[in-house]
Amino acid sequence: MPRDTRLLYVEDDPVLRTMLLGVLTQTLGFEVVASVGTAEEALAVEGPLDVALLDWALGPDSLNGVELGHELREQHEHLGVVILSQHYAWDFHGSRGAVSMGWSYVEKRADLDYAYLAKVLKATATGLSVVEPSMQPDRAPAAVERLSQLSARQRQIMSIAATGVDANIIAERLDLRPVSVRKELSECYRILLPDAESGTDLRTAAVIAWLEGQRSHTLDSYGK
């Protein structure tokens, strides 16, 4: 029998925290390792964790949810991070230069669908990334359209590049020559970054564009 997903929940509003804690444990079946109100308490939590559900706004003198997510990732390398927020913050998420999967954003609203939240949490715990379309209305359609222009081979290469490995390792995994991988990567950059400015870190920017396109599909495919 599979074990419950181990979750850390951080919310500075005690009323909301108590309410959602009951939903997470009694209705959705998560193993809540800790439910705390501050970033300091969250960083002191020990033990194995699969995913963290973090409120974006944790007080004026505190780390925000994204900053806390980065700090928690330093302690728990493979931790999934779900930000519960009214703000879309992908650019800030990528500000440390480490583009990684397992980061998701859910819009914080009164009519939050708890079954949907559970699905996002479990998907993120496995390394997927989900962002609600309402939180990125102008970016996802273009990113998805550009992905459709990539060949099957280019999709394979980008999916491996998104894990942070270099062209030599990609070539080894796909049984290709490194020069062929570099050529395909250059074509991926051209397709995914048609308006790239001089000086842009093409590899990082292309991975971000790849992930933005992928996020529109990950949740629909999860669990099928």
Rank of each mutant, 00 (worst) to 15 (best):
R3G: 14
R6K: 15
R6S: 11
L8S: 12
E11Q: 12
V15A: 14
R17K: 09
L20W: 14
V23E: 06
V23F: 05
V23C: 04
T25N: 02
Q26H: 11
T27F: 03
E31A: 09
A39P: 14
V45E: 02
P48F: 03
L49S: 03
V51T: 06
W56D: 08
A57G: 01
L58W: 02
P60A: 07
E67F: 01
G69C: 03
E71L: 14
E71P: 01
H78D: 15
L79N: 10
G80E: 07
V81R: 06
I83W: 05
L84M: 09
H87S: 10
H87V: 12
W90R: 10
D91N: 12
G97I: 03
G97H: 10
V99W: 09
V99I: 11
V99K: 09
M101K: 12
G102R: 05
Y105S: 14
D111I: 06
L112C: 02
D113G: 04
L117K: 13
L117E: 07
A118P: 13
T124D: 08
T124S: 04
V130F: 06
E132Y: 05
M135T: 06
Q136F: 05
R139I: 06
A140V: 09
P141M: 00
P141C: 01
A142Y: 01
A143G: 05
Q156C: 07
M158G: 03
M158C: 03
S159H: 08
T163M: 09
G164M: 01
I169T: 13
A171Q: 07
L174E: 00
D175E: 13
D175C: 00
E184Q: 12
L185F: 00
E187C: 00
E187P: 00
E187W: 00
C188G: 06
I191P: 00
A196L: 01
D201T: 04
R203A: 08
T204I: 07
T204D: 08
A205I: 05
A206F: 07
V207T: 11
I208T: 09
L211W: 01
R215D: 03
Y222V: 02
Y222C: 01
Y222R: 02
